[in-house]
Design a binder for these strands. Structure first.
Lengths: 215, 215
DNA sequence: TGTACATCAGTGAACGCGCGTTCACTGATGTAC
DNA sequence: TGTACATCAGTGAACGCGCGTTCACTGATGTAC
């Protein structure tokens, strides 16, 4: 990197930026956070990165490709965080699933800009192989968690399809995040309890019904 | 209305449109359906309604006010349809709640443009009293349904807070709609079952755990 | 019933602006020898 | 170690375009009398 030491505005010492791709992603994240995905132009993100309006074309085909990259990085991070929260099912599957739920909401809360890029743009997920793969990796954690929980804890009766369970969990977490966890400025709806408590209780009630109970 | 009899393109016989407000809302709905909210300009919606670019200013302060009106009308319709589905809890609360779920998904499927205007724009819900009221009317149906179900069916044990139950139901329905019910062109994720089946099973498992069971 | 008039919905021309995109270019970097 | 050169990231000027918004206007409507 070749930034002059004390210039947060992004001016450079060198002709080359050295880090433009990352800088564009960061600028896009900031702008999405302020105005939502779609709330800024390709030229604007160039300006924010302190670079000429033609420069971003060296790194992204167009605005959509940039937002798609933001979304992809978001899925990768979400997958990592879910993986860590799952912790191979420790201390027990139900508690680990609750931890996944907390991690999901924590992600949406900590990085609403990524979350918006991932879920609030009607992107053709199937047209971007990298994006699709990243999104499947994130969901994969929930699927494996559901499988493990179904296999470990179920004692008698019918065994619920793990895929279905995973989808229920995802939908509940996403529904709560999408309705009640917003950008800081009170954009979303008010809640009589924390989103975390709402998700925790919802998951508990749901998992109880499947014969799964915390140890 | 003063349209020439056989002119679907929107040309008029008269200087006045006679119906412009509704025509603008319809045009906006169509454009949102094609490109998402935010995917069109105020000038474009005027063009689509066959009217000069200055005309919409007679009816809406700006583009956002128009989209907010689309969202408001959406909430009103959703409230009506939920109300009808709830049917005062007939034939029994659990079945009626399942019907509300079906109505919710059916709304999202039948009118994805309204749904997007309602949930995919980061609007300051609290700044538009009419919009807020309409949205609360829709949620109110779910809240009353949850109350009724909790009061009617619960036999022993602790009674779950109806508000919490209503929020769980809403979040699950919204999560499924938002993730898996998209605009027709396969924008959303693939599912190994119908969204309706997924929601029905999810609600059933959840409600069972509360001691509520279908009759 | 007829007429004068107030109202107001829609016109169309105008403006300055920022956008997306292209282009020939420039100059920093790193590598072959 | 030094030099020539290929590479390619970023420049800045240019273009045409559509947008948002305003303005004085026009003409249809409906109502008072």
């Amino acid at each position: 990197m070749r930034f002059s030491s004390d210039d947060p505005a992004g001016r450079r010492d060198s002709y080359h930026h050295g880090n433009l791709r990352e800088a564009l992603v960061e600028a896009a994240l900031r702008l999405i956070g302020e105005r939502g995905p779609g709330g800024f132009s390709f030229a604007e993100v160039a300006r924010a990165a302190g670079v000429s309006p033609a420069a971003p074309y060296r790194h992204f085909r167009d605005r959509n490709a940039l937002v798609a990259e933001v979304a992809r990085l978001g899925y990768e991070r979400l997958a990592d965080e879910l993986e860590a929260a799952w912790a191979n099912g420790a201390p027990d599957p139900v508690a680990a699933i609750e931890n996944c739920g907390k991690a999901y909401l924590s992600f949406a809360r900590r990085d609403p800009a990524s979350y918006a890029a991932m879920f609030e743009t009607g992107f053709p997920l199937e047209e971007d192989a990298m994006l699709l793969r990243a999104s499947e990796r994130a969901f994969g954690v929930l699927r494996r968690a559901a499988e493990f929980a179904c296999n470990t804890h179920r004692i008698g009766g019918v065994r619920p399809p793990p895929m279905m369970v995973a989808l229920h969990i995802w939908a509940l977490a996403h529904g709560i995040a999408s309705l009640f966890v917003g950008r800081g400025d009170g954009t979303r709806r008010r809640l009589p309890m924390s989103a975390e408590d709402l998700l925790e209780s919802g998951l508990l009630i749901y998992l109880q019904s499947l014969g799964l109970t915390s140890a």
